[in-house]
Design a protein around this nucleic acid. Structure first.
Length: 456
RNA sequence: GCGGUCAUCGUCUAUCGGUAAGACAUCGGUUUGUGGUACCGAGAAGCUGGGUUCAACUCCCAGUGACCGCCCCA
């Protein structure tokens, strides 16, 4: 749409003064990094919705929706004060009432809050929660990265057995593969519990300090702020350093090591191919033990993370709930859809009307409105173009829609209580009693369906 | 937050310092109440704000947005 030039309008003077008010032209675009999900995009979105809802149901997850807005400290405390997400990417603002709130940057924090608040620990464990919706990060947009994006999220509370980790990873990869993305790479790692991570961190820091001169500027800073992040720096020289750095999996405490080992055994049992990636850290502070990501397996082009997650055994307690182990993961819907398009995965195909209702003349026009609803009530999907007058133009539309049958209701038919039923393939038509219409159409569509089936 | 590329009908793509062209799509028509093709016609654009110039869509500056790299992440 063309943008209107800004106009200067003179407001009629109430007093003596004439005021010129500059009217801001409407910016006919969404804010930066946000976009519309248009009707043409919906088949892909619908496919994601259907597949994820079905998987959620099959694996025993219950849907939960929490607000888009939460108190800001819910996120700062759970995700971590010094993470990038909280530090520079959160949409934080103060309400008129003076509350500091934020647009959710992810779904888990809100789910945990709700779990505790609603006493969901009394439910049979594990409590499995499925949620989906938009999340917000004030980041610089790029393809596959938006300020508003959508996640499909699975969380399970109250089970510490690594079998749940394995099943969660299975759900994640099933979800992505069920959407038609066959080539994926599963990356797993264990970052241990607070106890073993602390000693590992110290070990890592002292190693990095010794190699400090060989690191990039950013990583020198990271040694202090977030040493684990040095491990996934893409700078070549940092890569060299981290290649021979101590790895978290080698410094796990007994419990964490056993947990990880058992998880891998389960994954083998599930025939899930995985890569142990010692560099896999994640951007949120709450993770413990198992972390994983699913990457698009495309050879060429960048490997984009389609989704990821991990265990967060201490979060619920830290937020003030009962000590409850938990694990979860999220996929980024926009990225998944981008990948679906790239590999030409099939979107959802909505049912198309096989019947078109055409009308001619004022009397028929009035009648047709009711006839349409009669058909609809009987489960017959009908298309129409009531606004068009000529039969020719209506048939044109019918043809373009690819319907099998067109019903023609004109002046004469209306008076006779009949309707013309036209076969759009053969062109043959017959005039039938309007009262038998529904029954006849049902019959015709049924037999046509059989024909179509044989043709395929 | 830093660096780079780009911006013309709904979409794709031309052109030009002097009235912006085409294709696809949309809508209408080609005599009566019947579709396709073909043909004819219509509507539809210079992102915004400044500057240079007799004249700017074109040159310059700023803003905005998209894209790419970094940071980070889904």
């Amino acid at each position: 749409m063309p943008q209107k030039k800004s106009t200067t309008v003179k407001i009629a003077p109430k007093k003596v003064k004439t005021e010129k008010i500059k009217i801001e032209p409407l910016k006919l675009q969404p804010p930066r990094g946000m976009k519309d999900i248009l009707p043409v995009d919906q088949p892909f979105w619908e496919q994601v919705r259907r597949v994820s809802e079905r998987l959620a149901r099959d694996y025993g997850y219950l849907r939960m929706d929490t607000p888009l807005v939460e108190y800001a400290n819910l996120f700062t405390r759970s995700i971590g004060e010094s993470t990038d997400i909280v530090e520079k990417e959160m949409y934080t603002f103060t309400t008129r009432g003076g509350d500091k709130v934020a647009l959710r940057p992810e779904l888990t924090a809100g789910n945990c809050r709700s779990y505790i608040q609603n006493g969901m620990q009394v439910m049979a464990k594990p409590v499995k929660i499925f949620s989906t919706g938009p999340v917000y990060r004030y980041d610089r947009p790029q393809a596959g990265r938006y300020r508003e994006h959508h996640q499909v999220n699975f969380d399970a509370f109250g089970e510490q057995d690594p079998i749940l980790d394995a099943q969660m990873i299975q759900v994640a990869s099933r979800l992505i593969q069920a959407l038609g993305i066959k080539s994926i790479q599963l990356q797993v790692n264990s970052i241990g519990c607070p106890v073993c991570r602390k000693s590992y961190k110290e070990l890592l820091v002292s190693y990095l300090e010794s190699k400090k001169t060989k690191l990039c500027q950013d990583c020198k800073r990271r040694i202090v702020t977030n040493p684990l992040r040095v491990l996934d720096c893409k700078e070549d020289k940092c890569f060299q350093v981290s290649a021979s750095s101590p790895q978290s999996v080698d410094h796990l405490c007994d419990e964490c090591r056993l947990h990880f080992k058992t998880l891998l055994e389960y994954l083998d049992e599930l025939d899930l191919l995985y890569v142990i990636n010692p560099r896999l850290v994640r951007g949120l502070d709450y993770y413990t033990k198992t972390v994983f990501e699913i990457w698009s397996g495309s050879e060429e082009g960048r490997k984009l993370s389609l989704g990821g997650g991990g265990r967060y055994d201490n979060l619920i307690k830290q937020m003030g709930g009962e000590d409850t182990p938990a694990i979860g993961f999220a996929i980024g819907v926009e990225r998944i859809i981008e990948e679906m398009r790239r590999v030409q995965a099939k979107p959802y195909k909505p049912p198309k009307p096989k019947v078109f209702l055409a009308q001619l003349g004022n009397l028929a026009k009035k009648k047709s409105l009711k006839m349409f609803s009669e058909l609809e009530k009987n489960g017959i999907l009908v298309a129409e173009s009531f606004g068009r007058g000529s039969l020719k133009s209506q048939l044109k539309v019918a043809n373009r829609l690819g319907v099998e049958i067109t019903l023609i209701l004109g002046q004469k038919e209306t008076l006779d209580g009949t309707v013309i039923v036209k076969n759009m393939v053969t062109g043959a038509q017959e005039t039938i009693n309007a009262e038998k219409l529904v029954e006849l159409i049902k019959k015709k569509l049924k037999s046509d369906t059989v024909v179509v089936y044989h043709n395929n």
